[in-house]
Design a protein around this nucleic acid. Structure first.
Lengths: 104, 104
DNA sequence: TTCAGTACCTTGTGTTGCAAGGTATTCTAA
DNA sequence: TTAGAATACCTTGCAACACAAGGTACTGAA
C-alpha cells in the first residue's frame, strides 16, 4: 500500500534535519510506517546518486560511526514536487471515499 | 508514488456500484489519478482471481459488450482493511509533514 | 576474548505499473 | 458494402520498488 511513498517520507524527515539510516527507520516506525532495512539502505543510496541527498560520517557515542544524510537543494525541489503529488493523490482518494460512502 | 493504492481505489469505486474497466479508468482520471489500461486490466483480473471481484457481461448501447465488475463480500472485507491502512498511512505522512514544516 | 548492541550493506525474489502492441465489435459515412 | 472511427477488451516485456534473509564491522562490557 505504501509503495512509492517512502521516498517522500524520507525527504520530508531530512528536510527537518540530518539523520542516519537507523534513526530514519525509527522515526517512521513512530508514525506506524514500518520499513525494512533492506528497503531503506538501497533507497538512500539511490537518492544520493540522484543528487537529492548527501551524507557525512559522524562518530557515535556508542557503536560504529553513523552516516548522517542531509537533503540537498535539488532534494528540496524534488520534495516540493512530491508534496504536490501527495496532495493530489490524497485528495483524489478522499474524493472517491466520499462518493462511495454515500452508497455503502 | 501511487503504487499499491490503485487496488484500494478500484475497490472503493466498485463498492459504490458496478463499473466496467473503461469507466473505472475514467472515474479515476476525474480525480487526477491517471492509470493506464495496461495496469487496470491485469489488476482487475488479479482481483477477480483473488475472489474480491466478480463480473458479468452486459450489452453496450454502442460498441462491443462491457465487462461489468462488482465487488464481492470478500472484497468488502478486504476493502475495510485497506481503509484502515490508508488512514494509517495518510495520518503517518501528515504527522511527518507537520513536524518537518516547523523547521522548513 | 567473547558476546551483545549498533550500524552499515548486498542479493535474490515477488509485485506493481506502464508503454506498446494487438483483437474484436458496432456504427456511420462514403 | 466496405472502410474508418470509436469503443472495449487483453497481452507481453520491462523497470522500479519493497522486503526477507544473510552478511560485515565497530564498540563496550562481562
Amino acid at each position: 500500500m505504501r509503495r512509492g511513498v517512502l521516498e517522500y517520507s524520507i525527504l520530508l524527515i531530512l528536510s527537518a534535519g540530518d539523520e542516519y539510516a537507523s534513526s530514519i527507520i525509527q522515526k517512521l516506525k513512530e508514525v506506524n510506517i514500518i520499513v525494512a532495512e533492506g528497503t531503506t539502505y538501497p533507497l538512500l543510496i539511490r537518492l544520493k546518486k540522484l543528487g537529492l541527498l548527501n551524507y557525512r560520517w559522524e562518530e557515535s557515542p556508542q557503536g560504529p560511526p553513523r552516516k548522517y544524510y542531509m537533503i540537498t537543494e535539488l532534494g528540496r525541489e524534488q520534495l516540493s514536487g512530491l508534496d504536490a503529488a501527495w496532495e493530489e493523490l490524497s485528495e483524489g482518494i478522499e474524493s472517491i471515499r466520499k462518493n462511495s460512502s454515500r452508497t455503502k
